[in-house]
Design a protein around this nucleic acid. Structure first.
Lengths: 118, 118
DNA sequence: TTATCGTTATGACTTTTTGGCATAACGATA
DNA sequence: TATCGTTATGCCAAAAAGTCATAACGATAA
């Protein structure tokens, strides 16, 4: 038995940014390629592309500068706005998981003894 | 732009308990009926029933004592184990949302000014 | 005894969401 | 002008979520 937690940002009731998309942007920053980034985090290129499109539309912000063709076949890089947004999100997320895990252990018992008690 | 947070418990990688199921158990406790409870929280009886079944299977614990037919057509009540589990979960969840909301405001700005800055 | 009533219990179907495949277009470079 | 690894998207498949219909139940009242 384990605890899971999730944080995400919505705009107009639609999800816009969460941990998965954070990973994606970070990986794009690392590789300079949506394709490579998608492989890194084990999602299809198609899915990564859809994520980016939805994020940009809903936020109304350009997040990823892309080029198809050219040197190395093209590539993608984060915009300044994307980096800023990412920093803010990382800051917000930081430590929350630890708080939740700690509380879970306190209440349900470090070794989940309670489950065998039932 | 708003922050959302979610907590849930998994067993063997499968979701077992979260806010929605908490509402469901609480409503069953209140009405003594799965049917009424489902109406209260705006899900179909079918869905409520599936939730309960999955929870009980995955936890290996009987959560809801049911009777089809009889006085008032039957009904459903929480077991002692369900009440205990519910108490623990409520305790764990309590305050987490507030922590997250507070942090969101601090970082992204109380009035989401940052979104207009982009 | 029997009809009634509001439950629980499920199968079957529909709709929505998610995921993945296939393929076109791109453009610097050799 | 052929190549190469990208980005870009339409289309279909699979999975998940939601809905509908109907059977079974059993205390109670007629």
């Amino acid at each position: 038995m384990e605890i899971k937690s999730k944080l995400w940002i919505e705009v107009g009731g639609e999800p816009v940014f969460g941990r998965g998309r954070r990973f994606l942007l970070q990986a794009i920053d690392k590789y300079g390629s949506i394709n490579q980034a998608a492989k890194e985090i084990n999602i299809s290129y198609r899915r990564a592309w859809s994520y980016i499109k939805a994020m940009e539309e809903r936020l109304g912000i350009k997040l990823v500068e892309r080029q198809a063709g050219g040197k190395n076949g093209g590539g993608a890089n984060l915009t300044k706005d994307a980096r800023k947004f990412l920093r803010q999100y990382e800051l917000m997320e930081q430590g929350i998981k630890e708080i939740v895990d700690k509380r879970f252990k306190e209440i349900f018992g470090k070794d989940n003894q309670q489950i065998s008690r039932f």
